[in-house]
């Protein structure tokens, strides 16, 4: 199943850093994640960038069992 990584404020809103969700597109995976984690997480996803295996993707991107989906809110490094 696709593996999810939540970072920074997304990790805090989800209450976990990792999850696995069985769905076949980025949008379907995130829809299930929003159901699991609720409103605060949904608001974070709305302003986040989504990477699959380190690359920026759109919501209709297909995902498979070995893909890693990262939810990246606006950053504040440095």
């Amino acid at each position: 199943m696709p593996r999810l990584v939540f970072l920074g404020p997304a990790r805090e809103a989800a209450g976990t850093r990792h999850d696995v969700i069985d769905a076949d597109t980025v949008a379907a995976v995130l829809d299930e994640a929003k159901v699991r984690y609720g409103r605060a997480f949904e608001e974070i996803v709305a302003v986040s960038q989504i990477w699959v295996n380190g690359e920026v993707v759109s919501f209709d991107t297909p995902v498979g069992p070995y893909d890693e989906i990262a939810v990246l809110p606006p950053v504040s490094g440095g």
């Binding site: 920074g8 805090e12 990262a70 950053v75 490094g77 440095g78």
Partner: peptide, 26 residues
């Protein structure tokens, strides 16, 4: 680095902490 590296910071002061408001879309 400041606009493209996935990194998040929390401000920490004596009374608590919260995510920095100084953020940028990646």
């Amino acid at each position: 680095l400041k606009e493209s590296v996935p990194m998040w910071k929390r401000d920490v002061w004596s009374g608590g902490s919260e995510w920095s408001s100084d953020t940028r879309d990646i």
